[in-house]
């Protein structure tokens, strides 16, 4: 008996979309742990370090949500152009959250590696 195997593209795309949604906030926290970034700069940084194609407009609502949760702080900084930049930093609560997320990510990674072997 022959089996024709082919990837279920729709399933993989849906799964990848969920993974992206789940990991984007983690990626943002890791990037903001280094230094403060303004919105556009943060988008570029995500692009440099990952292959995730993120709708840039979705990033700002996410940052606002992180701010409401007390995970990031933000401040408007005036520029010579007259158009200010909004800088985001990790709050103390955010740093503790990131440490916890790193532990969970590491445990998950270890578990998957074990299963795959």
């Amino acid at each position: 008996m022959y089996y024709i195997c082919c990837m279920n593209n729709e399933f993989v795309q849906n799964w990848f979309s969920q993974v992206k949604k789940g990991t984007l906030s983690y990626i943002i926290l890791i990037i903001l742990d280094e230094k403060e970034y303004y919105g556009y700069e943060l988008v570029q940084e995500i692009k440099i370090h990952t292959t995730l194609e993120v709708a840039e407009g979705t990033l700002y609502p996410l940052l606002n949500r992180l701010k409401t949760e007390g995970i990031v702080d933000s401040k408007w900084v005036e520029q010579e152009s007259g158009i200010p930049r909004k800088y985001y930093t990790l709050s103390a609560n955010g740093k503790a959250t990131l440490t916890e997320m790193k532990k969970i990510w590491s445990a998950l990674n270890t578990a998957i590696n074990k299963i795959e072997k």
């Binding site: 303004y38 919105g39 556009y40 700069e41 840039e56 606002n64 408007w76 152009s81 909004k86």
Partner: peptide, 16 residues
């Protein structure tokens, strides 16, 4: 105002 300023800032940085 917050949403408008944020998008305005992004567009300015990307286009200026």
């Amino acid at each position: 105002l917050e949403v408008l300023m944020e998008l305005n800032s992004h567009i300015y940085e990307a286009t200026h």
